[in-house]
Simulated assay, not measured.
Amino acid sequence: MPKKDIRALSLPQLTQLFEEISEPAFRAKQVYDWLWAKGVVEFSQMSNLSKKLRDYLEENFAINAVQIHELQVSSDRTIKCAMRLHDNYVVESVLIPHQERMTACISSQVGCSLTCKFCATGKLKRMRNLNADEIFDQVVLVKNTANDRYEAPLTNIVYMGMGEPLLNYAEVLKSVEKITSPTGLGMSPKRITVSTAGVAKMIMKLGDDKVKFNLALSLHAANDEKRNKLMPINETNTLENLAEALLYFTEKTGSRPTFEYIVFKDFNDSLQDAQELVDYCKRVKSKVNIIEYNSIDGGEFQQTSTSRLLAFTKHLDSHGIICNVRHSRGKDIDAACGQLANKNKLISPELK
């Protein structure tokens, strides 16, 4: 029988386990601290436990740790990390250095099921959801990479890597709890942004759960016909559905969403498109991040011209919409937004 992943156990469950084997309850807190606050991935490193207890844990449990399989460093200092999971699937995470910030972009699924036309990950199959501990491990490994390579602490986390976070809702929220808990990494939830392609009912659930992290919506068109072409999920989660869900989210959490908008040449970059975005932002109070399009293999879109981009952003500004242009990072190593395709074909080379 495969060993049970010890990180799937809550602190109360660990406490009960130790009581059953006649160990004092405080041992559970010690193990929990090793796992989540210190990020230890081997029982042998839990130095304040007896050898007998460490041997018991080794015989009965596993720590299904994520490992860095490969690092690629961009000319702009962005680092892409291929992360190998315990079952040899590989996901990708990115460290994005920018002025005073060090941001980890992390994945929530192996592959993706949403088939967004501009995203390389959308061309992959969804193999499985990541567990909370696998998401947590990505953050720890990227955090360690920031310290080792740039001697800088990790400041921000974005769930914008491979997969749709809200289709892995429970594990994503568990991972946020571990990352923000004083018994975990102790990061502020305001330093975390979860990005969704737009699952209306789950956005409303975020409101019901009164989450403290930031929410971003991959919008890319404020017109159902165009958004349907870009993102098939819009056919069942229309702009009207999403507006209602986002308004509910804001009412419950007091937090306004951010709209992510990739500007494609001759598709969604006209002044009419800009006005449609203005109208949508007037309805759902928000700010907008304009994102450069990053080409992908077999992609059908192109980046808009500088002049069209400037006219688009000026139109938003003139109508009082808070708008920031996000320039691509890590494009030369396929680490930029939409480029995470995992060219290892989702398995480590040893298994090809």
Rank of each mutant, 00 (worst) to 15 (best):
T115R: 15
L242W: 01
S22H: 14
T196Q: 09
S328T: 10
A335L: 06
I192F: 10
E59P: 04
N168H: 11
A37Y: 00
S295F: 06
A8L: 14
S188P: 06
R84I: 13
V284P: 01
L346N: 08
Q303R: 15
N168D: 11
V325C: 11
G39V: 07
V172H: 05
K212Y: 07
D279P: 01
E151K: 15
T306Y: 12
L242G: 02
K229S: 11
L239S: 02
L242M: 13
V90W: 02
L35C: 02
L166F: 13
I157K: 02
T121Y: 00
S305C: 11
N228R: 03
V263Y: 09
V41F: 04
S22P: 06
S307R: 14
K51Q: 15
T78Y: 04
V199T: 05
A152R: 15
K174Q: 14
K125V: 07
D266C: 00
R326S: 05
N241S: 15
A311L: 12
S175F: 00
D5G: 08
P153T: 09
S286V: 08
S47K: 12
R326D: 01
R191F: 03
G186Q: 06
E164F: 00
D269I: 05
Q72M: 11
L346T: 10
P2K: 14
L277Q: 00
K212N: 12
L217H: 04
I6N: 07
I203W: 08
F249V: 11
A104N: 01
K201T: 15
M160H: 08
S44E: 15
H315F: 12
F18R: 11
R54D: 01
D332F: 06
G299Y: 02
E300C: 08
K143D: 09
L85W: 07
K285V: 10
K174G: 03
K210Y: 00
V110Y: 08
E164C: 04
D55A: 14
T236M: 12
D273L: 05
L167N: 14
A25H: 13
I106G: 06
S181F: 02
S74H: 02
K52S: 14
A146C: 11
R7F: 01
P12Q: 10
G299R: 06
G122S: 03
S44M: 05
K80S: 08
N60T: 10
H86D: 08
K4E: 15
L124E: 05
F118H: 02
Q272K: 14
L277Y: 04
A341F: 12
G330L: 03
H98T: 01
E164D: 09
I96P: 02
W34P: 00
V288P: 05
C81Y: 07
K285Y: 09
E244M: 11
T121G: 04
R149A: 09
C105K: 04
F264D: 03
F301P: 03
A243F: 00
N48C: 01
L206R: 05
T313Q: 14
E260L: 10
M231P: 01
L53N: 06
E23M: 14
D297Y: 10
E134L: 05
S175R: 06
L49A: 09
Q138Y: 12
G111S: 06
K117S: 15
C323L: 08
I290L: 13
E19G: 14
P153K: 15
